[in-house]
Design a protein around this nucleic acid. Structure first.
Lengths: 295, 295
DNA sequence: TCGCGTTACGAGGGTCGTAAAAATT
DNA sequence: AATTTTTACGACCCTCGTAACGCGA
């Protein structure tokens, strides 16, 4: 169960093709084929169905182990690399779409005003990419978001020695098209909308899967999936009646065609946390501290 | 950063000796030396001081990554092995010392009475060994314990796809020798004992490190360390005045020379959880379900 | 027949043990 | 001087790419 073999297995399963994975990884199809064969022999089970290429039951299970495992692996590597390298002067700030707030913009303006040499890249990333890039140190500081009970921390994939700090909590609301029967309520119970039509926007809105597990219900189904990190695109779909989504209430302050009705029960908030490696002193550490101080 | 290399690094650091680690692993000293050299070259940093052999700063950091990483790795391997193997008929039940309760004994008696073919090994293990052995499937079902806020889950090292289920919560008490000034109180504030003399018994009582981090204080110091899983040995040391320890209150019902004073603030409980892989149907799965049902 | 995955085989590189050297106590 | 770690070197094995093969659309 070599990590390299595991990584290739994940790639093949992801691409649904040996050749595509081989191209991406810079190997021959033959080599990739041998890797998968070796892994299957090692584990004593067929991991992939061929033609079409799709993971078997055992393969799916292995994927569930492999993805977080490899993420942790990369995080460890990146952390070791940081220890032996000088801190960069250019800071990459990774931001989840819903963490890209007016507060962040103005705080960043203040910081850059006070410190003219501060050289920052702001990079908006989806949830999976953001935690991955923080883990692998492709971004120095990540502003992640999600749903949580008030004062509870976010449930993030475990990446080892990363540090999280709470930055903000705000009311969570259901985004409804203006004409929706519930659109003029002052607040609502989430369970009343379990059977509504939802939009699955895993990188932009709150993903639906945790809603289902939290409520124990089978509802919150979606027939439209929105991939991307542009909130305006999502709100346009909601306004057009394609379905509902969970967003922080402030996102709607100036949007026509949408009503944001706060979720009253269960008690849930939209939460933003800073995620980063324990940083030696440097620009990234100072930025992190300043954001926390300003929150 | 091969897992094998990492494993050997952990072994060498643990033994404080290349030769001892080599003996344990069935390699030559030479090979182990080459492994460490390769790892150090790969990471571009010296990981171990030689003569005496001790981890450097970077090495310590790597150990912090490596130990949980390898545990997860083993857990994934064990889980895959389970999927391709028939469930065993003999069940190994791993139990933390403080989870070895009268309730467990009688529940187990009931279960074995109802099901005569049930073949069980009860194995008392310290905290680190227990989570490790559950992860690697050396035990089928682990009863782990620890300190937590009421209704909060235990903080366990992340081992991937393991499942936990709450079994019991009980009052947490400070074990004091009978003559102690606070021994006759009905309850006490933990902070009042921050400067007392404690006994560090990581496998038997509540470890002191989480107390320090939770309280943010530097107190709860110990000058006596108790290694082992025998609660009676620890209570004997407490009765003799070597120091204090945190234990569930029931442990003292019949012990002379000791007073158990419940901790009133902060609100904390001793909690027992069942820890196991998602099990296919089999004796282990049935035992887990029965224990949860009886709790 | 074409596209894709598997198998056969050989070159190259990496890993281990033996043995000798170096360093610390 | 003894013990422990490092280095040198050679045998072995493993991995990758090329190329031939098998198989399904």
């Amino acid at each position: 169960m070599d990590p390299h073999l595991l990584r290739r297995f994940v790639a093949v399963a992801g691409h649904g093709s040996f050749s595509a994975a081989a191209r991406e990884l810079g190997y021959t199809q033959s080599a990739v084929s041998q890797h998968i064969a070796a892994l299957e022999k090692d584990l004593g089970a067929v991991l992939l169905q061929r033609r079409p290429v799709a993971p078997t039951g055992v393969g799916v299970r292995l994927l569930e182990h492999a993805r977080p495992l490899l993420l942790r692996w990369d995080a460890a590597r990146a952390d070791m690399a940081r220890l032996t390298t000088a801190p960069a002067t250019r800071i990459v700030l990774g931001v989840a779409p819903l963490a890209m707030t007016a507060w962040l913009s103005s705080t960043l303006a203040d910081l850059r005003g006070a410190q003219p040499g501060l050289d920052v890249t702001v990079r908006v990333l989806g949830r999976a990419a953001l935690t991955r890039d923080v883990a692998t140190a492709a971004v120095d500081l990540g502003l992640v978001d999600g749903m949580a009970a008030p004062a509870d921390p976010l449930q993030l994939p475990d990446t080892g020695l990363l540090t999280t700090t709470a930055l903000a909590e705000e009311p969570l609301a259901v985004a409804l098209p203006a004409g929706h029967p519930l659109a003029d309520r002052a607040g609502l119970r989430l369970a009343d909308l379990a059977d509504a039509q939802w939009i699955e926007a895993p990188d932009t809105a709150i993903p639906l899967a945790p809603l289902r597990t939290a409520s124990g219900s089978d509802g919150y189904r979606s027939s439209l999936r929105y991939e991307g990190t542009d909130v305006r695109g999502l709100t346009a779909l909601i306004a057009a009646g394609h379905g509902l989504a969970l967003l922080p209430q402030r996102e709607f302050d100036d949007l026509p065609g949408i009503r944001a009705v706060p979720v009253r029960t269960p008690r849930l908030v939209h939460r933003i946390e800073a995620l980063h490696h324990e940083m030696p002193d440097g620009p990234a550490a100072r930025l992190a501290a300043a954001l926390v101080a300003a929150s």
